[in-house]
Structure formats: C-alpha cells, structure tokens
Computed example of a mutant assay.
Amino acid sequence: MKTYGGRAVADSERAEHTTGGVYSVPGQSFERDSRYITTRVTRGGESGYAVESGRYRLIAARACPWANRTLIVRRLLGLEDVIPAGMPGPTHDADSWTFDLDEGGVDPVLKIHRLKDAYLKRDPDYPLGITVPALVDTRDGAVVTNDFAQMTLDFSTEWVEHHREGAPDLYPEHLREEMDPLMRYIYTEINNGVYRCGFAGSQSAYDEAYARLFDALDTISDRLETRRFLMGDTITEADVRLFTTLVRFDAVYHGHFKTNRSKLSEMPVLWAYARDLFQTPGFGDTIDFQQIKSHYYEVHTDINPSGIVPAGPDNSGWLSEHGREALGGRPFGEGTPPGPVAPGEEVRPEGRADA
C-alpha cells in the first residue's frame, strides 16, 4: 500500500482513476481524484529536492487548465530558463500523456514518449493518474511532484532568488489570509465546478452542479465590478487560477460540459476581466485554443463519442477593447511585464485568437 496526498492507496483503487485524474460514476455526482505526489522543491531542500536552476523539467500540456497555470506563473516570474518546460500534445489515452509534438514523439530532454515513464521512475507501482503538470528531476528522470496547487505557490515563494527583475508578487504575504479562502472557493465552485457539470452522472447531480457554478460566477462577477483584479489593483495567483477556466469557457465548457446558462461573452464583467488578462503579457500568449478544443472533444469520448472537434467559436473577440483600465490599478504593480515569449514556446499560429 502506497501513501499519496496523505491517504493510503490500495491496489484495488487503481482502476477508478483516469489519466486526467478525474472520474465519474453513473448516477452520482462527479468527484475529482485529489491525491497527488506532494513532495516539494524548496530553497532548503528539506525533502531532498532543493531549488536549483536547470535541474527540473516542467511537463505542462497547453490544453490542461491546471498545467496552464504553471506556464503562466513561470512566465510572469521569468523562470523559463530556470525551469525549462516540455509540452505533451493535447490528447492522451487511458495510459499516459505523450510527447506527440516533439520530433520522433520523444521529449528531447527526458528521452521518453510517455509521461508515465517518469512516474514509474518515481514508483514502479505508481497507482494514480498520470497528470500534468508534473515537475521532473532531470538527474534521474523521476517525477518530483504533480501537486499543481502547491507548485505555483512554490514558484512564487521558494524560487524568489531566480525571479526576473520586475517580477510581480503573485502571492503577497499580507493578502494571504483573504486570498487562500478565495482561491479555495474558485477551485471548488468554478475550476472544478465546470467538471462537476460535465461529468455529472445523473440529471439531479447536473442540476445541482449547474446551479452552484453559476452562483459562483455571479458572486465573482459582483466582486470584480469595482476592482480590476480579484485582490485589488494588481494581478495575483488568484487571477491566474480563475483565468484558466474562463479562457476555456466558450470554447469548451459552454457546449461540451453543458454550462450553457450564458457564454462568458454574455457575462459583461467577467468577459471584460478575462479579456484584460488575456491581453496582458504572460496570459494570452500561453493559450492555444486549437489544442484546448482538441483535448476536450477528442479525449472525453464518454461525453463526445464521435470525437468531432467543433470549428467555432470565433476567438477574435479576445483581442477587443475591454475598458477595465477605467478601474485603475496596474497589472504588475511596481514591477514590469515579462519580455517576449521564450524561443520555441510560441503558440502555434492556428491556435491563436487571431487565427
């Protein structure tokens, strides 16, 4: 029996957990498998993994909202050269994410085709989902952690000595008492709320999930009416976490997950807020709409058996004026925007909003 995320996992439990770390039981509400490898990379290296430039490889698929968070935070903080990234293709099978976009289908650094191989390096009997993002130690090719929520907080707090000059403080200490419960609310009600709708196992479960999701979106919309960002005048980790769900809303969740009370583009405050972030360096330049659609519509065959990927929607609206400057504030506070996207990490032309 192994222990992950503070809970013992018996061999008999393995079949419940998919590559994406989620599962749904017919007739029941959706649940997310929230057990992760919780080892941390810290300045002091207490767990055996110390902060070290170039030692770790971030494996983060653009299609995945949880992985997208790490790509945004890494870019905002200027950690691209310090924590190099590998990006699997947008689809995966029941076994593993794979490096379909790389030459020969092999990650050029880890020399593996399946991300699963890095998990098995950590534990030959690894029982849980093969998820992204994953931080891999290039010394032995083994996964260090896939705890996405802690990973980005550690990028902000443990990797400070490697931040670029002018990097924003995404997790300000004086705001954490208010931020932490807000981020938990965003996770349970919105980030996970769309999945609760999409994978509901019954009509009643869906109806409850739908009501919870839109109640939360309305609550957050009210909060953002008078403040430019969730915590006030500057961007924080809370905005990153909300953004990755909002940017997928019309392209995927509205139709695929049946979250169709309103499109994001029909919710004025949230739509303007999301466009403000999208047009901020570090956010929209990590988004590949084509990969996002390919992932959800091709992988979730239980929801979309045909595997047909819709041609729409028109994403050019993401580049339209948002007017949020009228609320004041500065996205990076006393800091500065990140520089150009790192070579080789540019979003493919067919995935951009102006495609």
Score class of each variant (00 low, 15 high):
residue 296 Y to H: 01
residue 303 I to R: 15
residue 256 H to M: 07
residue 307 G to R: 14
residue 234 T to C: 12
residue 322 H to W: 08
residue 218 D to V: 00
residue 278 F to G: 12
residue 328 G to F: 00
residue 290 Q to F: 09
residue 208 E to Y: 12
residue 305 P to G: 13
residue 315 N to L: 14
residue 322 H to G: 00
residue 319 L to Q: 12
residue 330 R to K: 15
residue 292 I to R: 00
residue 273 Y to N: 04
residue 240 V to D: 03
residue 212 R to A: 15
residue 208 E to I: 10
residue 240 V to W: 07
residue 285 D to L: 05
residue 235 I to E: 01
residue 218 D to Q: 06
residue 259 T to F: 00
residue 280 T to S: 09
residue 213 L to P: 03
residue 303 I to Q: 15
residue 250 D to K: 02
residue 305 P to I: 12
residue 267 M to S: 04
residue 319 L to V: 11
residue 306 S to C: 11
residue 222 D to L: 04
residue 284 G to Q: 10
residue 269 V to L: 09
residue 327 L to S: 10
residue 235 I to A: 10
residue 277 L to A: 10
residue 206 Y to V: 06
residue 328 G to E: 02
residue 243 F to Q: 05
residue 304 N to K: 08
residue 205 A to R: 08
residue 284 G to F: 10
residue 222 D to K: 09
residue 283 F to E: 07
residue 235 I to T: 03
residue 328 G to S: 00
residue 327 L to M: 02
residue 229 F to P: 01
residue 248 R to P: 05
residue 294 S to K: 13
residue 257 F to R: 07
residue 211 A to Y: 06
residue 220 I to G: 01
residue 313 P to W: 08
residue 258 K to T: 06
residue 226 T to K: 15
residue 314 D to V: 12
residue 232 G to P: 03
residue 293 K to F: 08
residue 229 F to E: 02
residue 210 Y to P: 02
residue 323 G to K: 09
residue 227 R to G: 12
residue 254 H to C: 00
residue 289 F to N: 06
residue 305 P to C: 13
residue 242 L to N: 02
residue 274 A to K: 07
residue 295 H to M: 13
residue 303 I to P: 11
residue 296 Y to V: 03
residue 275 R to H: 11
residue 266 E to A: 14
residue 289 F to V: 07
residue 291 Q to S: 12
residue 227 R to C: 14
residue 260 N to A: 10
residue 250 D to T: 06
residue 238 A to D: 06
residue 235 I to N: 08
residue 323 G to M: 10
residue 243 F to A: 00
residue 281 P to W: 07
residue 274 A to R: 02
residue 275 R to C: 12
residue 226 T to G: 09
residue 270 L to G: 03
residue 329 G to F: 01
residue 251 A to P: 07
residue 230 L to M: 13
residue 214 F to E: 05
residue 218 D to K: 03
residue 277 L to P: 10
residue 311 A to Q: 14
residue 227 R to P: 09
residue 259 T to N: 04
residue 242 L to M: 09
residue 320 S to F: 14
residue 257 F to H: 10
residue 315 N to G: 00
residue 240 V to M: 10
residue 261 R to T: 04
residue 230 L to D: 07
residue 261 R to I: 05
residue 313 P to Q: 09
residue 312 G to P: 10
residue 247 V to K: 08
residue 217 L to D: 03
